[in-house]
Nucleic acid binder design. Structure first.
Lengths: 173, 173
DNA sequence: GCAAATTAATGATTTATTCAAG
DNA sequence: CTTGAATAAATCATTAATTTGC
């Protein structure tokens, strides 16, 4: 793909329109580049801090949000496999996806019932071949974990209001 | 030894032991009650505001987070179907629910590109049969939508660091 | 009667499928 | 057609019920 296709290049703030509001994110060439590199480096599911950092840094190239990074990795990973077999090509039948990296690291701590020690005794290999980030905070994950995916929904309408027999609104309002 | 079901019934406030720390959320009987009622009322996928409000109100009965509400609806909805066929019980086969409320309302606004007016021109029926909440904020969903599901990850270890050929860390650190 | 072991529920994650904008 | 965005399905992991042995 061309480089200057959707890229705004320096000088112009095109891409991800600065004025437009509701549209979907349109990544810049640089952004895609970085993301792709990160992906090729092995990053599959970045943590919250990672995402925050990535989007923060990528914001230098244009407007971007955390969710964009999140979705990007989601889609890229999922499509990596689908792209090989479902290339909508009638004659493209060579799907050599021999990588079934299920990687189910369930070596998490027991956290039986004593406390929240939560020691991740994962393989203590030398995984620091390419330290992406220092990964600072990893302490209290109690209040931190409250936003979650629901934030993604911009769902305004509510499906409720179906059965009249109930009147729980009293409990709320 | 099976009379008290699982609910603490009146008199005793069990569930969500105030002492427990890390572990998964354990809903109170009241919380479950409300959630179930909401679900039975037709609520399937509450919006962010809804979730926030629900959890806020349910917090009166015990510790609860937004994600809990979110997950609860997710699971409850998904299990409603699976519960009917896969009931490994010895002889308890009386779970008849015949409601297949698929109801896929995809009439979201266009949000073409002008602004973020976001008008939900859903069926303008009398859906206020059971107003759950006034549904206050529904404005800027730009910055608001940045936490998302990634917040859920308490992932300490990073999957990155796999291929050394790259050194994008320079771009970040 | 209680406690360890087992089973069933269900809360929490991850993955796959689908929808629609560009 | 590409791809960001959203939802549903499948899966994993932990807690509560239940069972069993003492």
């Amino acid at each position: 793909m061309g480089e200057g296709e959707r890229a705004a290049e320096s000088g112009g703030f095109s891409a991800t329109r600065a004025g437009a509001k509701c549209g979907r994110w349109n990544p810049t060439a640089e952004q895609v580049k970085v993301l792709t590199d990160l992906f090729r480096s092995g990053l599959r599911t970045p943590s919250t801090d990672q995402i925050q950092m990535i989007s923060a840094h990528l914001s230098a190239f244009g407007k971007i949000e955390s969710k964009n990074v999140f979705y990007w990795f989601q889609n890229h990973k999922a499509r990596e496999r689908h792209h090989k077999k479902r290339r909508r090509g009638p004659r493209d039948e060579e799907d050599d996806d021999g990588d079934h990296q299920k990687a189910r690291s369930r070596c998490l701590a027991s956290c039986t019932k004593g406390k929240q020690d939560l020691f991740w005794q994962r393989q203590e290999r030398e995984t620091e071949t390419l330290e992406l980030f220092p990964l600072k905070s990893c302490s209290s994950d109690e209040e931190k974990v409250m936003s979650m995916r629901s934030e993604l929904w911009g769902r305004p309408f509510l499906d409720a209001a179906r059965d009249p027999p109930l009147d729980l609104r009293l409990s709320f309002i």
